[in-house]
Design a protein around this nucleic acid. Structure first.
Ligand SMILES: NC(=O)c1ccc[n+]([C@@H]2O[C@H](COP(=O)([O-])OP(=O)(O)OC[C@H]3O[C@@H](n4cnc5c(N)ncnc54)[C@H](O)[C@@H]3O)[C@@H](O)[C@H]2O)c1
Ligand SMILES: NC(=O)c1ccc[n+]([C@@H]2O[C@H](COP(=O)([O-])OP(=O)(O)OC[C@H]3O[C@@H](n4cnc5c(N)ncnc54)[C@H](O)[C@@H]3O)[C@@H](O)[C@H]2O)c1
Lengths: 225, 225
DNA sequence: AATCCCCCGTGATTATTATAACAAATGATT
DNA sequence: AATCATTTGTTATAATAATCACGGGGGATT
């Protein structure tokens, strides 16, 4: 089963190629988490209605998302928890273990290092980079920290494919440039509060905490008298 | 100028009520940051084309977003940097200084505390909450940390309106419940990797780092051979 | 086995968001 | 002043995403 980035409702394509919309992938991860929980609770079946209530989604949305991958539920009954869990797990599982690196071992970088989000069997964190002499050369959370000046060379040598950027805004572009120059980087997850420009074939995802807070406050302004 | 949360393209309403789509608000924050930078560089004018190039957006998107708030640009010329900066600042500025609290002073909570995202004149961080005895009673980054058992009472007394949730997933719902019980909370920004359920009139924004990483990996799988 | 209520899968519809296209305005140039 | 190259504001259109609505299994119950 192949898949690729796509803006639009998920559709089956003749050639066996499946294109899944980003909002659907996001919800698949939520379904996966929920199923994991239900699995642990030894729950046997669950309906789209129930999934929707637990995640704050419409039942029809849940059914549509799940139906993109074949008829996995049972009419009149619901979805078999373990089967659906395994199914979504297959969909989300990568076809390889990605090699990743984190640039900027500051407050946020260290928080990430300590968190389970970076302990996944989908990737292996192979290197850290920083320009702070007190960090370079250290082994932090079991991962060696290198000088960011050597980034291009080390990323190329280690064949790092994914970059997590937790450097200050001013260092984001130069860090991205150094990493991309290695030629191995396929994707970047950036937390910097600035836009970065990379070659077209590098996929960038941005997590912008300040923006989310601003949006919350903006819409609060309108909803409250 | 009033505004409220709304799913759909921004429209002027007769009554002077303006409804702005969330994607537009998100980009407004990006425009604001960029304008701040251009302002510091003493740039005088900028075109929608240039803004778009710097932020990775189409010029037509930029013009559309900016036009919701009246004719602020000058045809044949572009947008006057300082004027647009001030204008967006007005749009984004709250009609009050929000009182906020942060629950869960762990790795992520502390990273946020140290970051400028929580040093804004749009809100005042009034309280921290944790259930770790080594944190309760301390003053962390200048903010007092209270026992999470006392949350309802303290939030009510301090009239906290916005909550930042950085507790483990298992503590997210109980924390939200305790806070909401105070009756003063209007909005929540949660980083927990779980859904929380709150009354309809409480606005929830979620930042889910693991989900973003999962999405990146999923779409990498499809884009790479 | 007939009846009933349940609940999935899916095509149709609606809602939302992005892009394109162009008239109108602006300042520069001749 | 007329012409021209620009660049906005805005309407029209396209693209994307969510929801509805219903056909059709599925199993329990009588
Ligand atoms: N901390 C937060 O809660 C938070 C919230 C929102 C956004 N962010 C964003 O995340 C990023 C990191 O924030 P932070 O709070 O961890 O900052 P920080 O200052 O604590 O850490 C930044 C790290 O990057 C390193 N660094 C600086 N320049 C570098 C370079 N050229 N190459 C390699 N490393 C370099 C520094 O030595 C430091 O270790 C920033 O862009 C920030 O805007 C952070
Ligand atoms: N650290 C990260 O980079 C990261 C990444 C993605 C998601 N998250 C999410 O953010 C949240 C916090 O993560 P973290 O890494 O900071 O965890 P952490 O364990 O470092 O911190 C959690 C804090 O919450 C406190 N706490 C626990 N139960 C509490 C309760 N009932 N009331 C009040 N406080 C309580 C703990 O004492 C601790 O100080 C989690 O939901 C996590 O999934 C964190």
């Amino acid at each position: 089963m192949n898949s690729c980035a796509f803006r639009g409702q998920a559709i089956f394509k003749e050639a066996g190629i499946m294109k899944i919309a980003e909002p659907t992938v996001e919800r698949l991860v939520l379904y996966y988490r929920l199923l994991s929980q239900l699995h642990n609770e030894e729950r046997r079946v669950v309906s789209s209605q129930e999934i929707g209530e637990m995640l704050g989604l419409k039942a029809s949305q849940v059914r549509k998302d799940l139906s993109y991958f074949g008829e996995i539920g049972k009419r009149g009954v619901g979805y078999h928890v373990d089967r659906l869990y395994q199914h979504i797990s297959n969909i989300l599982s990568p076809n390889r273990v990605w090699k990743i690196a984190l640039v900027g071992v500051g407050r946020l970088g260290e928080a990430l290092l300590g968190h389970k989000a970076l302990r996944s069997d989908k990737f292996k964190l192979e290197a850290l980079f920083d320009n702070d002499p007190s960090k370079v050369g250290q082994v932090i959370c079991g991962i060696p920290c290198y000088d960011s000046e050597e980034m291009t060379e080390i990323i190329r040598r280690k064949e790092i494919e994914v970059l997590i950027l937790t450097v200050p805004a001013g260092a984001a572009q130069i860090s991205a440039d150094r990493a991309v120059a290695a030629g191995t980087v396929k994707g970047v997850l950036t937390f910097a509060t600035t836009a970065i420009s990379v070659p077209e074939d590098v996929l960038v995802y941005r997590v912008d905490i300040s923006v989310e807070l601003e949006k919350l406050l903006f819409f609060l302004k309108g909803s409250v008298a």
